[in-house]
Write a protein that binds this DNA or RNA. Sequence first.
DNA 1: TTGCCGAATGTCAGTGACTGTCATAATCTC
DNA 2: GAGATTATGACAGTCACTGACATTCGGCAA
Lengths: 226, 226
Amino acid sequence: MPAQLTEATTAPGCRVLGLRERKKQRTRDSLVDAAHRLFSSQGYARTTVDEIAAAVDVSQRTFFRYFENKEEVALAVMADAEDFFIDCLRRRPAEENPLQAMRASITEAWRSLGGMEQVGPGSVTAALELFELIETTPTLLAAHLRRTTEQERVVAGILAEREGLDPATDLRPRVLAAVFGAVVRISHLSWTSDAAAHEAGPDGMIALIERHFDQLGPALAGSWQR
Amino acid sequence: MPAQLTEATTAPGCRVLGLRERKKQRTRDSLVDAAHRLFSSQGYARTTVDEIAAAVDVSQRTFFRYFENKEEVALAVMADAEDFFIDCLRRRPAEENPLQAMRASITEAWRSLGGMEQVGPGSVTAALELFELIETTPTLLAAHLRRTTEQERVVAGILAEREGLDPATDLRPRVLAAVFGAVVRISHLSWTSDAAAHEAGPDGMIALIERHFDQLGPALAGSWQR
DNA sequence: TTGCCGAATGTCAGTGACTGTCATAATCTC
DNA sequence: GAGATTATGACAGTCACTGACATTCGGCAA
């Protein structure tokens, strides 16, 4: 039955995966979902991997085939968002200068992710909950910071390529990527304690990042006036 | 015999601690020392806490009374160095502007720490080894990044106080502290792969940090020229 | 010196994250 | 539908870390 086979592998949009792949995607999503529910109800530390696995009815061993460790399942949606940002950056027109491209990319990323779904794991309220979970859980914060610095390395590579520079020689890509990462991070931090910014949805976050960016010049300036 | 008591508690320089305190300090130092030796010979992951404890002839339980976790013993000397930097910053004259004070503080910190001992846990070669250990060990890198961001919060507080600002309102202290942290971090990273910089000792590190700082302006500038 | 108090340490048992291994069961391919 | 792949489960084991309790050691006063 070649017809069925073709249907399974090359159907609508050439994107329909086989049953195996779909099933895997489903369990993975379920695990992320169950984990978030448990974390937010009992806290991260008081939730065991066994519980998460049991909630999805798979063995603990299977959990660890999907995620390297307990932190990864908590940070999965954040990781996806960061990958999305990277994709945006790769697609920015070459005319933009590095800083413009980066600012445009986060804006773009927050707009599309925020607009995707009003509820569920991609929603703004879910993001807020996740940020708070991360900030209040030392081990999660540590894992998250490691992830983001890894992304900074990738970003620096993209910037260097855009400008046709050798990242080993020229320090600017690394420096800019690191500064950008720092600004985004403290913006996230401010966002968690800024009720007005949540209300505004993704635009609130974007505005906050812009405000922090605008303080870069003044902060680096010689002396501060009150 | 009050004489002996006084001698034990208020002898030369009024700094001699009791036997109990001295013993604690000694075991702690020994643990850090043994840990570093084991980590550098067998690697971090392949060294168990039991081994470290056994090398100093204490129980595993005692190890965990000195250090919250395995990462902490590896990062202990780095943590001390950071605390020293904080102290330097606190002591900087009020006339200096924030950026000047920070740059002066790392320079000061590296000079005195580097000049302290030519060999041993405080030496430049030991620092290099430690940096490499951290960068090649994901869990150590994560813990280290968490520590440094915590220090950034402290630094931001000091800066705000120096300038008489409310850190909740004014974004500049946080932004500057974060940018500073980012610059220092990538400088450390460059240092590990820059043989010439090791030779120069602390001054090599200081020069690297200065170079990265000098790229801040250009990196943030509109467009980059090759 | 003696004896008491509190702090430091050791012992032991337990939990939970994570890994290797092998058997089994589910998909995929032909 | 047979056979090759691949996902999963079951099980045992290691290791980081913790609570509880007994013991020992240093600090101090009678």
